[in-house]
Simulated scan of single mutants.
Amino acid sequence: MAVPATTSTLSPRKSASPSLTVRVGRERSSSIVKVEKVGEESQTDVLDQGVYDNLNAEWVNRKGAWLIHTVLILAGKVVIDTIPGMPQEISWTLVNLLYLGFSYLMFHYVTGIPFHSDLHGGVYDNLTLWEQIDEGAQYTPAKKWLFIVPITLFLASTHYTHYNPWLFAINLTALVFVLIPKLPAFHRYRVRFMVPDEPSRVGTPVTPNFPRSGTATPLGESAFSIPPIDIREVDSRL
């Protein structure tokens, strides 16, 4: 009895082998407020800080460093009062805003050390002046004084503006922006506004077409010359 044999030929597709596509992370929308933290102190940083005195922050503990704040505030008040027709409400508000503005710029905005930077190995490059004072220690006498001065000036300006609600709101807002960076909870933290989020740096591999199960993965140009696969099915009948 003849045994019929059926032969079927499966030819692979003539297209190229499945390519590996890398999908790079898409840049997302910007964040309104973003809080970033500067790196923690390492043992190397501690040793670097102890080699030489930080002249950029050491002056706040010298004689007269505390008194200079009072002198500058009084001098600024006298200069502003020399403007003809300047009311006392606006004068005290300007003194308060100017002092808080320069204080924020000096203690909480500028980072690094402007001179004698060659004495240190970059340990202060990302730190503000407030974070450099007393090697970052909290509640020191100098930091307590720098915390009290803006509050006292705010109370004085509020009193001499006769508790005007609009001027009070302006002075209070400026005070809050200066006091928040002084809090220990914000040590080494940076609050940034409208910072775009960084795109994902790790690509996600995507293979649209996977080879059939049980077949070897083609390498190089061999994917274009895969021989046809013959499958013979034998139908036997009794």
Rank of each mutant, 00 (worst) to 15 (best):
1 M>T: 13
1 M>P: 09
4 P>G: 13
4 P>F: 03
10 L>W: 08
13 R>C: 05
14 K>L: 15
18 P>M: 00
21 T>N: 14
24 V>R: 07
30 S>D: 10
35 V>G: 04
37 K>N: 10
38 V>Q: 07
38 V>E: 12
39 G>W: 01
40 E>F: 02
42 S>V: 08
47 L>H: 08
50 G>Y: 02
51 V>L: 08
61 N>G: 10
64 G>K: 04
64 G>C: 07
65 A>F: 07
66 W>F: 15
67 L>A: 15
71 V>I: 10
85 G>L: 04
91 S>D: 12
93 T>G: 13
93 T>K: 06
94 L>N: 06
96 N>L: 07
97 L>P: 01
99 Y>Q: 02
100 L>R: 08
102 F>A: 10
103 S>P: 01
105 L>G: 15
106 M>A: 14
107 F>M: 15
108 H>F: 13
108 H>Q: 14
112 G>E: 08
118 D>A: 06
118 D>R: 03
121 G>M: 09
125 D>L: 04
126 N>S: 15
127 L>T: 07
127 L>E: 12
127 L>F: 05
132 Q>L: 04
133 I>W: 03
134 D>F: 02
134 D>N: 14
136 G>L: 06
139 Y>D: 14
139 Y>N: 15
139 Y>Q: 10
142 A>R: 01
143 K>H: 07
143 K>S: 07
144 K>D: 12
148 I>P: 00
150 P>Q: 13
151 I>D: 12
153 L>Q: 09
154 F>G: 07
155 L>A: 14
158 T>G: 06
160 Y>T: 06
166 W>M: 09
166 W>E: 08
167 L>C: 02
167 L>H: 02
167 L>Y: 02
170 I>F: 07
175 L>P: 02
176 V>K: 03
178 V>I: 03
179 L>C: 08
183 L>T: 12
183 L>A: 10
184 P>T: 05
186 F>E: 04
186 F>C: 10
186 F>N: 14
187 H>F: 11
191 V>W: 03
191 V>Y: 05
194 M>C: 10
197 D>F: 00
198 E>M: 04
200 S>C: 09
200 S>D: 15
201 R>L: 13
201 R>E: 08
204 T>Q: 05
204 T>F: 00
208 P>V: 01
210 F>K: 12
211 P>D: 09
213 S>I: 09
214 G>R: 04
216 A>E: 12
218 P>S: 12
220 G>V: 04
224 F>N: 12
224 F>L: 08
225 S>D: 12
229 I>M: 09
229 I>T: 14
233 E>F: 03
235 D>R: 03
236 S>Y: 00
